[in-house]
C-alpha cells in the first residue's frame, strides 16, 4: 500500500455555479495526525464528505486507504472512523444502547477502549444520550468512533462548541488511543491551539483552494513578520510577491510575509530606518494573517483629529 492513506488529485466540487473545492491535491501520510485548517466555508467539510463518498466530486478523484472514495465497500468503511460535525447520536438511546447498536455493525469492537473513553468522560451508561451535555455527547461519539479501532480516523471539527476542558479531554482521548498504534488522523478545525497541540502536519484551505500543506513548524517558519520603526518618514518599500499584510501606524510599519527569500529579507534589513525587528508569531497569529484579509491596513493618529 502507498505511504499515503489519503490522496486526492484535482478534487473539485461545485454547488450550482459556486466552486467550493478547487483542484485539491492532498496527501496524508500514514501514521500522521493531520490538521485540516481553514475558515468557515473554506471547503473542509465538503472535502471530508467527498473523502467518505457522501458527496460526489464534480471532477477529480480521491483515494482513501487505496480505494476510490466513491466505491468504498462496507469492509473499507469498517477501517475508517468518522466523527461528523455536531456529534450526532440517537437521543432516545441510552449510552449503553448506543454502544450496542454501533458494535453490532463492526466485526471488531474493542470494549476496553469504549469503556475507557466513557470513564474518561464520566458517562453513566444508563443515561439517555439526549440528556448528555455537549461535551459528554462528544465523548460518547468519540468512544463510538474509537472502539472499532479504525486505521484512519476522520474528525470533522470535533471540538466545535466544546468548552476548553471538554476539548482537552477529547484531544487527550484521541491521542491516548491513536498514539499507541500506527493510526492516521485527519481532523478539521479552526481552533489553532488544538491543532498546535497534536498535529504533525497541516493543510490550509482558503476559499476552496489549498494554500499550504506542510509540517506545522514549516508553516510557522514560513510566515514571518517584521516591524520597521521610523521617525515619521516612511522608507520606500519594495513590492515582494509573498507579502501577506502591511500595517502602518505613524512611526511603524508591520510587514507579514509568506515564503520570504534570503534576498528579500536582506533587502528589508538594509532599509535605512530607526530599527527593524522580527516578531515571532504564534501559530494562531500566523494562521489568522495567512487566511485573513490581505493587503494594507493603517492606523494613523492624524485620522483621529476630527474625532471627539
Amino acid at each position: 500500500m502507498s505511504e499515503y492513506v489519503i490522496e486526492t488529485k484535482g478534487l473539485t466540487r461545485y454547488f450550482g455555479k459556486t466552486c467550493v473545492v478547487s483542484e485539491l491535491d492532498l496527501k496524508v501520510p500514514k501514521g500522521s495526525i493531520f490538521g485540516f485548517l481553514g475558515r468557515n466555508g473554506a471547503g473542509k467539510s465538503t472535502t471530508i464528505r467527498m473523502l467518505l463518498g457522501m458527496v460526489e466530486p464534480t471532477r477529480g478523484s480521491a483515494h482513501v486507504l487505496g480505494k476510490n472514495s466513491q466505491e468504498l465497500s462496507p469492509q473499507d468503511r469498517a477501517r475508517i472512523g468518522y466523527l461528523p460535525e455536531g456529534h450526532h447520536v440517537y437521543g432516545w438511546m441510552t449510552v449503553e444502547e448506543c454502544g450496542k447498536f454501533q458494535a453490532s455493525f463492526y466485526p471488531h469492537w474493542n470494549h476496553t477502549i469504549f469503556d475507557a473513553v466513557l470513564s474518561h468522560f464520566r458517562l453513566d451508561r444508563k443515561n439517555k444520550a439526549g440528556n448528555l451535555s455537549r461535551g459528554q455527547r462528544a465523548g460518547l461519539c468519540l468512544a463510538l468512533v474509537l472502539a472499532p479501532e479504525p486505521e484512519l480516523l476522520i474528525l470533522d471539527d470535533p471540538a466545535l462548541g466544546l468548552d476548553p476542558v471538554a476539548r482537552r479531554s477529547l484531544i487527550q482521548s484521541m491521542l491516548y488511543v491513536t498514539r499507541k498504534t500506527d493510526r492516521t488522523i485527519l481532523f478539521s478545525s479552526h481552533l489553532l491551539s488544538d491543532v498546535e497541540r497534536v498535529a504533525d502536519e497541516i493543510a490550509v484551505l482558503d476559499r476552496g483552494v489549498l494554500r499550504a500543506s506542510c509540517k506545522l513548524d514549516t508553516f510557522r517558519s514560513h510566515v514571518r513578520q517584521f516591524v520597521i520603526k521610523h521617525n515619521g518618514k516612511e522608507p520606500p518599500l519594495p513590492d515582494f510577491p509573498g507579502l501577506l499584510q502591511t500595517f502602518r501606524t505613524d512611526t511603524e510599519i508591520s510587514l507579514t510575509f509568506a515564503n520570504i527569500s534570503h534576498d528579500e529579507e536582506h533587502h528589508i534589513r538594509s532599509l535605512e530606518v530607526h530599527s527593524i525587528e522580527e516578531i515571532q508569531l504564534s501559530l494562531e497569529d500566523a494562521f489568522v494573517t495567512y487566511v485573513g484579509e490581505r493587503g494594507e491596513k493603517s492606523f494613523f493618529t492624524k485620522d483621529l483629529e476630527g474625532v471627539k
Binding site: 457522501m54 462496507p74 468503511r77 447520536v89 455493525f105
Partner: peptide, 15 residues
Amino acid sequence: LRRDQWAFLVHRPVT
C-alpha cells in the same frame, strides 16, 4: 436527513 446525522447513519460497515 440533516447532513451530519445522515452521514452518521450511512458511514458504517453496511451498504
